[in-house]
Design a protein around this nucleic acid. Structure first.
Length: 661
DNA sequence: TCAATCCGTATC
DNA sequence: ATACGGATTGAC
């Protein structure tokens, strides 16, 4: 096999195909498919991936030799190459772009470390060599399904049995409030491993990863899995990657950096909280972890687990098309586990209790918190993330401007728009300062810490902790105390929170985003799921109008109902995921140039242009899902025409852009 | 007629 | 991106 097919690491769309090189005799054995090479290409030395060896080349001209084998380590597994090609095709990107995401940068010292000693790391210990015939015997001995929390869900035990039997079962899972989701994921992964196959699981952030890591250690024992995330740093990341690639461990869990992790005989892909936008990769071609994992399940005939407290419209589509089965609890089980949820919408009354002289909360919220604290249970307060929009105060007397309805902080969305409440989202059109009757407003900085101080004053003597960007708590003890957290940073509480106050309707009611409703419900459920059941005193107060659809979904604790409604609405409006959408961003001329070159499918609709930041504009292209492949292919070719012509102005092509407006 | 330059195209 | 070949242009 004297010919090497090489993918050169060059980000030009029109060079997205393999090039043939001759393999020098001395590299005949070591230059195997999947290795990194350096080759002379267009007169310069570039990095490349050896994709395959062949007996002959189709290339008419003369072949040059590989310049160098970077390392004999076959880092690119055949499964990952097929996956990367499929992902590149789906997202109108180049194979080289995806490979750069899929294979972490080489770390030579780590590569030289003795292979069989992952015990040197805390993440991985040695494992009996993966012997294909021994594994099924073990599987029969330790069927993990009998006594697990999956029995709370009628379809749960069957799902585990299918995974152990090696059948590619695919599930959309709605976790019961208070459930130990990480334990459920660990059980599904253990079932897969007992069936003799491997698993990859992706979570949104480090805190969720810690939980899953601990649950897996409990379910599988130490050393059967590695954690992979960009936060590890180059050496640890490459070490974890190599442990997976060399088959030292059968399971990889991590943040989105792990979505391409190589695993032997993949039997399960899993993602938790797929609606979290941390799952969207910000580098070209912008693949989403859920889509990558589902593509993987499809190609590798592996099982899939898409779960969360809430359900994304994309997950709902999997259920409605029959691609996946839903795993949900019976309504009576849901009712028994959910906290009592109350909206404040019809209660314009602020706390008037004598003890609440300084309270800045709707009375319902204040009462719920006080009751929970009196019962010696902790209270979680979810507040909006600060940053984007400064809060405002009276320009004359500097009293912070408060929402007349719920006493939340007012903020300015834009210079012209009237101020709106960051808690309940209501617009305060004609603001009058209650202190000095001033009508002019000025920007002021009110952070989560300030909110924490205010709440502390409302409940004298009660300890207040904060969990947010700077410092994220993962677990807090039982007992009477307050936790103020921004969305995504809510810690769990031993025994559950006695009350959860949701002061984050801001996103729902003020953002014009297509996904605003879905995102709001996701944030609320993520926090509300940490509350005790109603029977144990658990109470949730949401500062929003009870008539709103996401509030209804929260009251009924029915994320599937909401997702079905949401998907139906998107079908009606022609929005993703009911259709496939792509965006093209750049200067007006460059965008027009690219669309000119693109042979779009007949069914394609052009929407826009929409102004983007700094005199660039954005066009949206919409096609039915059946034409998604044709659209991506057309956009990739058109980008290729432009790079071939050395078009100076860059254009960004994005399939499934996160935000549409 | 030849060389310098431009433009388009292939890059293995 | 860079290199090269063929076409083009301008000067002798």
């Amino acid at each position: 096999m004297p010919v090497a097919r090489v993918c050169v690491d060059i980000p030009l769309a029109h060079l997205d195909r393999p090039f043939d090189y001759l393999v020098p005799a001395e590299l005949g054995d070591t230059a195997q498919p999947g290795t990194r090479v350096r080759v002379r290409f267009a007169g310069q030395l570039v990095d490349g991936w050896l994709l395959d060896r062949a007996a002959a080349s189709d290339h008419g001209g003369r072949l040059t030799y590989l310049d160098r084998l970077v390392s004999p380590e076959p880092v690119l597994a055949p499964e990952i190459l097929r996956l990367a090609r499929a992902v590149a095709d789906r997202y109108a990107g180049s194979l080289a772009d995806v490979l750069r995401l899929a294979v972490p940068p080489r770390h030579a010292r780590v590569e030289r470390e003795p292979a069989a000693d992952p015990a040197a790391t805390s993440d991985a210990a040695s494992l009996p060599a993966a012997s294909t015939d021994a594994v099924p015997l073990r599987a029969a001995a330790t069927d993990p399904s009998p006594d697990t929390g999956w029995r709370d869900y009628p379809a749960g035990p069957g799902f585990l049995r299918a995974l152990t039997a090696g059948r590619p079962a695919r599930a959309v899972y709605s976790a019961l409030p208070g459930a130990d989701w990480a334990a459920r994921y660990a059980e599904a992964i253990a079932a897969t491993v007992h069936g003799g196959r491997g698993a990859v699981a992706v979570v949104a952030d480090a805190r969720d990863l810690d939980r899953l890591d601990a649950a897996l250690t409990a379910a599988l024992g130490p050393g059967r899995h590695v954690c992979l995330s960009a936060a590890l740093g180059p050496a640890r990341r490459y070490r974890a990657f190599l442990a997976a690639r060399r088959g030292t461990v059968p399971v990889v869990v991590g943040t989105r950096a792990a979505m391409f992790a190589p695993v032997d005989r993949l039997g399960l892909v899993a993602i938790w909280d797929d609606g979290d936008d941390l799952h969207a990769e910000p580098r070209a071609p912008y693949p989403h972890a859920r889509e990558v994992l589902l593509t993987r399940a499809q190609l590798a005939e592996a099982g899939a687990l898409v779960g969360g407290w809430s359900r994304s419209a994309e997950a709902q589509l999997l259920v409605e098309t029959g691609w996946a089965k839903e795993i949900v609890a019976a309504r009576e089980t849901v009712r028994a586990r959910t906290p009592a949820v109350t909206p404040t919408g019809d209660d314009p009354q602020l706390a008037r209790d004598p003890g609440a002289a300084t309270a800045r909360l709707p009375s319902l919220a204040w009462t719920a918190a006080r009751t929970a604290l009196a019962a010696d249970t902790p209270v979680l307060v979810q507040v909006p993330r600060r940053g984007y929009l400064p809060s405002i105060s009276c320009a004359d007397c500097r009293t912070p401007a408060r929402c007349p309805h719920c006493a939340g902080p007012l903020a300015l969305g834009s210079a012209q728009a009237p101020p709106a409440c960051r808690w309940c989202g209501r617009v305060a059109a004609a603001y009058v300062c209650p202190h000095c009757s001033g009508r002019r407003l000025r920007a002021a900085v009110t952070g989560a810490r300030r909110t924490a101080e205010e709440l502390g004053r409302a409940f004298p003597g009660v300890p207040v902790r904060t969990s947010g960007r700077d410092e994220v708590l993962s677990q807090v003890p039982a007992g009477a105390h307050l936790v103020v957290a921004t969305p995504g940073a809510e810690p769990g509480a031993d025994g559950g929170f006695g009350a959860v106050l949701l002061l984050d309707a801001w996103a729902l009611l003020t953002r014009a985003d297509l996904r605003a409703g879905e995102e709001t419900l996701r944030r609320w459920l993520n926090a509300a799921a940490l509350a005790r059941p109603a029977a144990a005193g658990g109470r949730v107060v949401v500062v929003a109008d009870g008539a709103l659809v996401p509030v209804q979904a929260l009251l009924r604790w029915d994320p599937a109902w909401f997702a079905a409604r949401e998907l139906a609405e998107r079908r009606e409006l022609g929005f993703p995921p009911a259709v496939r959408m792509a965006s093209v961003t750049g200067s007006a001329a460059a965008v027009a140039d690219l669309l000119d070159a693109a042979r779009l499918p007949d069914a394609a609709e052009l929407l826009g242009p929409v102004p983007a930041d700094s005199d660039r504009e954005r066009m949206l292209i919409r096609v039915p899902r059946s034409r998604a492949g044709a659209l991506a292919s057309a956009l990739h070719s058109a980008a290729g025409v432009r790079t071939a012509r050395k078009a100076a102005e860059p254009v960004r092509v994005q399939v499934d852009p996160l935000a549409l407006f």
